Simulated assay, not measured.
Amino acid sequence: MHTKSIRGTRSVGYSVCVVGAGPMAVNHIRALNKVGFTVKHIGASVNSRRAQQVAKQFDIEHVWPDSGEMIEKADWDAVVLVTPPENTLEILKRAQRRERPILVEKPVALRAAELEALSSSSAPVLVGYNRRHYNVVRQAAGFVEKRNACLATFQIPQAFGNDSPVRGTSAAEYAVKTKVAIHFIDLARSLLGNLHPVSVTETVTGQASPSRVMVTKSDRGDVCVFHANFNASANFGVTVDADGERVRLEPIERVAWFDGLEIVEPTEAVPIRQYAPVETYRDFEQHYSEGCKPGLYRQAQALLDVVSGREDRYSATVTDAVEALRLAERLVS
Rank of each mutant, 00 (worst) to 15 (best):
residue 103 L to A: 14
residue 106 K to E: 05
residue 118 L to G: 02
residue 137 V to H: 13
residue 136 V to L: 11
residue 30 R to L: 13
residue 58 F to V: 05
residue 125 V to F: 10
residue 107 P to V: 15
residue 56 K to L: 15
residue 43 G to L: 01
residue 38 T to N: 13
residue 126 L to S: 03
residue 63 V to W: 03
residue 90 E to L: 04
residue 99 E to I: 05
residue 74 A to S: 14
residue 32 L to N: 07
residue 114 E to D: 15
residue 112 A to F: 00
residue 57 Q to V: 00
residue 24 M to V: 14
residue 41 H to W: 04
residue 18 V to H: 08
residue 41 H to V: 10
residue 111 R to W: 04
residue 124 P to W: 02
residue 22 G to T: 08
residue 129 Y to I: 06
residue 18 V to R: 14
residue 74 A to L: 11
residue 43 G to R: 12
residue 43 G to N: 02
residue 62 H to Q: 14
residue 102 I to V: 13
residue 61 E to S: 13
residue 56 K to A: 15
residue 56 K to T: 12
residue 61 E to V: 09
residue 47 N to E: 15
residue 137 V to M: 08
residue 81 L to R: 03
residue 87 N to P: 00
residue 21 A to Y: 05
residue 123 A to I: 08
residue 125 V to M: 03
residue 34 K to Q: 14
residue 133 H to N: 15
residue 83 T to F: 01
residue 66 D to S: 15
residue 98 R to A: 07
residue 61 E to D: 13
residue 104 V to E: 05
residue 127 V to I: 06
residue 86 E to R: 09
residue 13 G to M: 05
residue 125 V to W: 08
residue 78 A to K: 07
residue 116 E to R: 10
residue 137 V to N: 04
residue 133 H to C: 12
residue 132 R to W: 09
residue 87 N to S: 12
residue 31 A to I: 12
residue 64 W to M: 06
residue 38 T to D: 15
residue 43 G to P: 01
residue 68 G to A: 00
residue 14 Y to P: 00
residue 77 D to Y: 02
residue 62 H to M: 12
residue 48 S to L: 04
residue 32 L to F: 09
residue 29 I to W: 02
residue 109 A to Y: 12
